[in-house]
């Protein structure tokens, strides 16, 4: 199989994630979209590493997964806190930083 197939899959997943981030209002959905984008880049890393014959990329992918887990943990914690304060996680409603 060619490398391009992997890159194509990654690109599709990344685009879905990016689209979701731009259109969704719920904080949780946005976080899930971020995960999609992260995993798209992970696929790229692993693919290049596998075809390039260099294991470094796979190690990076492992790191990136660990960091994604931590990021998700913090993100959900923030959302829970937000929900307690505002009663909503609709990010369009949370705009107190506006002018």
């Amino acid at each position: 199989m060619s490398l391009y197939i992997y890159l194509l899959v990654a690109a599709i997943i990344f685009t879905i994630g990016a689209y979701g981030i731009m259109t969704q209002k719920s904080g949780i959905k946005i976080l899930m979209c971020i995960e999609l984008m992260l995993n798209a880049s992970n696929i790229n890393l692993v693919a290049f590493s596998s075809f390039g014959g260099n294991a470094t990329g796979q190690v990076f992918a492992l790191f990136s997964i660990a960091i994604a887990a931590a990021e998700a943990g913090i993100g959900f914690a923030i959302l829970v806190a937000l929900f307690r304060v505002n009663g909503t996680i609709n990010l369009d409603k949370i705009n107190i930083l506006r002018w």
Binding site: M22, N95, W99
Partner: peptide, 17 residues
């Protein structure tokens, strides 16, 4: 210029992308 700061996160992300 401050009108650019809409306070909507999705706008910021879109501009960033």
């Amino acid at each position: 210029l401050k009108k650019i700061q809409t306070g909507v996160v999705r706008n910021y992300i879109s501009v960033m992308l």
